[in-house]
Simulated scan of single mutants.
Amino acid sequence: MKTSRLLLALLAATLLLSNCGGKKEEKEEPKNDLESLQEMAEKVGKSSDEAPKEAVDAKLLKELLPADADGMPRKEASSEKAGAMGFQVSTAQGTYREGDSSIEVVIADVAGTGAIMGMAAWAMVDIDKETDNSYEKTTTYKDNKAFEKYDKNNKDGEIAVILANRFVVTVKGNNVEMDKVKSTLDAIDLGKLADLK
Rank of each mutant, 00 (worst) to 15 (best):
L6R: 13
L7D: 02
L8M: 13
A12C: 00
A13W: 02
A13R: 12
T14L: 00
T14S: 15
L15P: 01
L16K: 13
G21K: 07
G22T: 10
E25C: 06
E26A: 12
E29H: 09
P30A: 13
L34H: 12
L37H: 09
L37E: 09
A41H: 04
K43D: 07
G45T: 11
K46G: 01
A51P: 08
P52C: 08
P52W: 07
P52I: 04
K53H: 13
A55N: 05
V56R: 02
A58K: 00
K59T: 11
K59Q: 12
K62W: 03
L65E: 01
L65I: 02
P66T: 07
P66I: 10
A67Y: 00
G71W: 06
G71L: 05
S79Q: 06
S79F: 15
E80V: 08
K81R: 14
G86A: 13
T91V: 15
A92S: 10
A92K: 04
Y96I: 03
E98V: 05
G99E: 04
S101H: 04
S102V: 05
I103Q: 00
E104D: 13
I107V: 10
I107L: 14
A108L: 01
V110Q: 06
A115Q: 00
M119S: 12
M119G: 02
A120L: 09
A120W: 06
A121Y: 08
D126N: 14
D126Q: 15
K129F: 12
N133P: 00
Y135A: 05
Y135T: 10
K137F: 03
T138H: 02
T138D: 06
T138I: 10
T140I: 04
D143T: 11
D143G: 11
N144R: 14
A146F: 08
E148Q: 15
Y150I: 06
Y150H: 04
N154D: 10
K155D: 02
G157L: 05
E158Y: 05
I159R: 10
I162A: 01
L163H: 05
A164F: 03
N165L: 03
F167V: 04
V169Q: 03
K172M: 12
K172L: 08
K172R: 15
G173S: 09
N174M: 07
N174W: 05
V176N: 01
E177W: 00
E177I: 00
T184A: 11
A187M: 07
I188A: 07
G191P: 06
G191V: 04
K192E: 13
L196S: 08
L196I: 11
L196C: 11
K197R: 14
